[in-house]
Design a binder for these strands. Structure first.
Lengths: 227, 227
DNA sequence: AATTTCATGTAATTCGTTACATGATTCC
DNA sequence: GGAATCATGTAACGAATTACATGAAATT
């Protein structure tokens, strides 16, 4: 039970899958390494870890085995707790990775999913990217409608805020388009090796990050998205 | 008492300052008219309105005065409740408008503040814009540091996510720079009239927008616009 | 020696949602 | 007259934070 957050659970399992860690370090990775994640507090993280342990997805390892553990117990001091993913935990994470639901396209969920794309099947990646895109397009539709309805009744600042918000969404759509195209291009060239965590084939040397095709469109040079 | 949200309270007072409204309408304006706001549910809104009434900042007006009220009471039916800002409420909102704290620079708070810039003193507008900018610059600093620390240890997707996140923040900084410059330019040209609610001078036609962070929305299955 | 950073936790509280319950009004 | 939308609310729950409490290790 305990439907603990979803996002946090997912991220914790994903990070621990890469390597065992203790809570403090986990939290830092949550905040920094993965660009988007909001800063979960310890008050959120530790209870969540407890739950995951209770579910059998993690095990706690105190200290670094024998020597340390012995010394620790003798001194009665509290050892660092390293969390490690169990086989069940790994299985559970795989399942989370392949499952998509209505929440998947929402902002934070999407960011979390994207952060673990390296461990995600290509087919699922496509589903997530396309789902996200259509979610954003819906959003744009609403924004446009609302803007049309209320235009002229709003002061300049409110208008600017809306305009800016819309542009940000449009930008993210373009970003997604590039990613999707990049995935499609990659698919044909990729040899089948479902087990290795799939490196992205940088088809063109000049691509900056993962994609980054500058298909310009004239006068608007500023480049990327928003989130 | 009841530190109700801050943002919601602020937005409600701000909207009602422009004109009286009932709850349902208020919620729609919260979701659509103001670009950024996430969709508050009725379960949040109505209790909040109650609190604001209890604080003396709003009064409830049932129906449209005499004729309606009479008919309503005779039939025993429930009338629409229109909320109107009281003098105290207006005063309180003024105070909120002029006050800035550490929260002011955060995503949702900032968006809410910006949405009511039309009713905000120029001096305060500047403070908010500049505070937001330096908040974002701090954030950039951290992101850069984190990126430098972990580069090469991350897979392509994680890297792309970070890159994208950083670019979004950079974009918002540029947007703020333009707004700030625009405000400054406006100041010199403006004749002194501290009472009139300052219009935004669009100095540059091309104002490029960027902001939008906190994405609103939630998986809100209930009504709403354009479902 | 003192301060900062690492490290782990709990209790109370805040913020907000979902699900439920009800009824009025408008449109077809 | 039936459906959709407008309109108002409440109770139970959920997610996450803050403030608190503790203590070890590294740095200065």
């Amino acid at each position: 039970m305990s439907r603990r957050s979803g996002i946090l659970e997912f991220a914790v399992l994903g990070l621990l899958r890469e390597s065992p860690m203790h809570g403090y370090e986990l939290r830092k990775r949550l905040n920094t390494s993965l660009g988007i994640f909001r800063a979960f507090s310890y008050g959120t993280l530790y209870p969540c870890l407890k739950t995951l342990v209770a579910n059998g997805w993690l095990i706690e390892e105190t200290g670094i085995a024998a020597e340390e553990a012995l010394a620790a117990s003798l001194a009665g001091r509290r050892a660092k707790i390293v969390y490690r993913l169990t086989a069940e935990g790994k299985e559970h994470f795989e399942e989370l990775l392949s499952h998509t639901g209505p929440d998947t396209w929402e902002d934070e969920h999407f960011a979390a999913r994207f952060a673990f794309f390296g461990q995600t099947e290509r087919e699922v990646r496509m589903r997530v990217l396309e789902g996200r895109r259509s979610r954003l397009e819906e959003r744009l539709e609403k924004m446009r409608a609302s803007l049309a309805r209320t235009r002229e009744r709003l002061d300049d600042y409110t208008l600017e805020l809306q305009r800016h918000g819309m542009e940000s969404v449009e930008r993210e759509v373009r970003w997604l388009n590039e990613l999707i195209e990049s995935e499609r291009a990659g698919r044909d060239q990729r040899r089948s090796d479902p087990e290795s965590p799939a490196r992205h084939d940088t088809t063109s040397e000049e691509t900056d990050g993962l994609l980054r095709h500058r298909d310009d469109t004239g006068p608007d040079p500023s480049d990327d998205i928003a989130k």
